[in-house]
Design a binder for these strands. Structure first.
Length: 469
RNA sequence: GCUCCCAUCGUCUAGCGGUUAGGACGCCGCCCUCUCACGGCGGUAACAGGGGUUCGAAUCCCCUUGGGAGUACCA
């Protein structure tokens, strides 16, 4: 039997972290077993579904590299099929028309709550004959007794009593089908073997199984993955910190870092933390997935992102970094070789946004010195070292790392100072702040002109300071 | 309220009857060092509580507590 899994988001928003992980697990499971991964858009809620969301979800999947083999299928394109199945159920007496009023339903609900019971439809129309000509919904005839067992790949055996379930609506008054029903029809029609989805669907599963059985079929295997919580331990939701996966791209994260982070959220393979995509596919196993919800932790994502930035081909990083430079009004083609910049900054940046920020000095002058750095390093004592190093640098016939370094060491030796006493003021003068790659690389990045010019500026700064003292 | 699910360091987790309860992120030291990083070394820190079962429980069972989900003519 070929494995067939699906990811079935509803297009009522962007692809968020939780959805992305569910998609990842489904995708990995299919890939591991040489199966098929299907994308299905559950857009039966026509009020809230938007094309914009569909695009956002597709874009997110693409960015993460979670390519699907079939789909995307849209449920709104399958209304004829759902109608057909509802009619069949109706004919076979496994579903019935119901015209109970909103008021009656509300009353039922209130009464149940007052009696400390679970609100349930009472089956009022179950045996009645509501005409197809009057407004009505169609309800599924849920078994009245017995238990439904969900053999969950992650949770184990979970049993529900049929008396806890009621006759759910499968077709609305306006003729459109409802979620729990379309899922059943689709999962069956698409011949899914494994349904991997969020924990929040566990309670829907017994109803779905009952419908599947009514349709004369056997349910697929289920695996309900736990939720992802926000860093505060609260549930991640659209209104609570669940940001779009595309936001992570914009914030300078690499897709492989996000994927690696996500796969370790709720799943593990011994003590291993770093997984290539191939390793994930090879090692992933659904029954190694944790049962407990887990909290999203940005620090760890940051660590992974840095790891992947550090380990990646500089050429690729440069390509990904480019748009972030653009946001800083920098055209990387004008100035230092971006690939060289990446090589110099690879182990200094946790995100591409940060890398762009700390590399800007190689392309344009900064507005002002970082206050702390200037206070500490652009002091009167730094004046002579700066003047000397500037003089030495200006005589360099070739602007090279070796030449730059020898200027700095030579000046520090002449003045009997530690190299830091020369390099730090020089660094602050050229970069505007106290941290940058090694001094030779830094000056190479800034270039001869900018270096000499900025030293002038730093010297002016020191003189002004002396004058003020 | 009712039904269902869950519970190991702050966080992600290993553990699947016998371990000094391991790793990772973070944090704190030290080393490296022209700064920042990287890297190396070391440290901090957990079995929610209570009952059982057992020669022996983080591991199995029950209860409590605490989280979460569902309870829609949403998905």
């Amino acid at each position: 039997m070929t494995v067939r899994t699906r990811f079935a988001p509803s297009p009522t928003g962007y692809l968020h972290i939780g959805g992305a992980r569910t998609a990842l697990f489904s995708w990995l499971f299919a890939r591991k077993h040489g199966g098929t991964f299907i994308l299905r858009i559950e857009d039966t809620d026509r009020e809230r579904s938007t094309q914009e969301s569909v695009n956002a979800i597709l874009e997110g999947m693409t960015w993460l590299g979670l390519e699907y083999d079939e789909g995307p299928f849209f449920q709104t394109h399958r209304f004829d099929r759902y109608a057909e199945v509802v009619d069949d159920l109706l004919e076979r007496g496994l579903a019935y028309r119901c015209n109970c009023s909103r008021e009656r339903l509300d009353g039922l609900r209130e009464k149940a709550l007052a009696a400390k019971e679970k609100p349930r439809y009472d089956g009022h129309c179950r045996d009645g004959e509501v005409s197809a000509d009057e407004p009505h919904v169609v309800r599924f005839k849920n078994p009245l007794d017995g238990i439904v067992v969900v053999d969950d790949l992650i949770r184990g055996r979970v049993a529900f009593d049929n008396t806890e379930l009621d006759d759910l609506i499968i077709r609305r008054t306006d003729g459109t089908p409802t979620y729990n029903f379309t899922v059943v029809v689709d999962d069956l029609d698409m011949e899914l073997t494994h349904v991997i989805r969020g924990d929040d669907h566990l309670n829907n599963t017994p109803r779905q199984i009952n419908m599947i059985r009514a349709l004369g079929k056997e349910p697929p295997q289920y695996a309900h993955v736990p939720m992802i919580l926000g860093s505060d331990g609260q549930r991640l939701s659209k209104r609570h910190g669940a940001v779009s996966v595309m936001q992570y791209r914009d914030d300078g994260y690499l897709p492989e870092a996000l994927l690696n982070y996500l796969v370790r959220l709720g799943w593990s393979h011994g003590d291993q933390e770093i997984f290539t995509i191939d390793e994930m596919i090879e090692l992933f196993d659904i029954d190694q997935v944790n049962k407990a919800a887990s909290a999203f932790n940005t620090d760890k994502l940051l660590w992974l992102n840095q790891h992947y930035i550090k380990d990646s081909d500089p050429l690729r990083i440069a390509r990904l970094l480019s748009p972030h430079m653009g946001k800083l009004d920098i055209d990387p083609a004008q100035g230092a070789d971006l690939v060289e910049v990446v090589k110099a900054q690879q182990e200094r940046a946790k995100t591409l946004v940060e890398m762009a920020d700390i590399s800007a000095f190689a392309y344009k002058d900064f507005d002002e010195f970082d206050a702390d750095a200037a206070k500490k390093h652009l002091r009167p004592v730094a004046r002579e070292p700066l003047e000397r190093v500037q003089a030495a640098l200006s005589t360099l016939t070739e602007w090279s790392g070796e030449g730059i370094l020898s200027c700095v060491t030579q000046v520090s030796e002449e003045l009997g100072l530690n190299m830091g006493k020369v390099a730090q003021p020089l660094r602050v003068a050229v970069v505007g702040r106290a941290a940058s790659p090694s001094i030779d690389v830094t000056l190479m990045m800034a270039g001869r002109e900018a270096t000499l010019r900025r030293i002038d500026k730093a010297l002016a700064f020191i003189r002004a300071r002396e004058a003020a003292a």
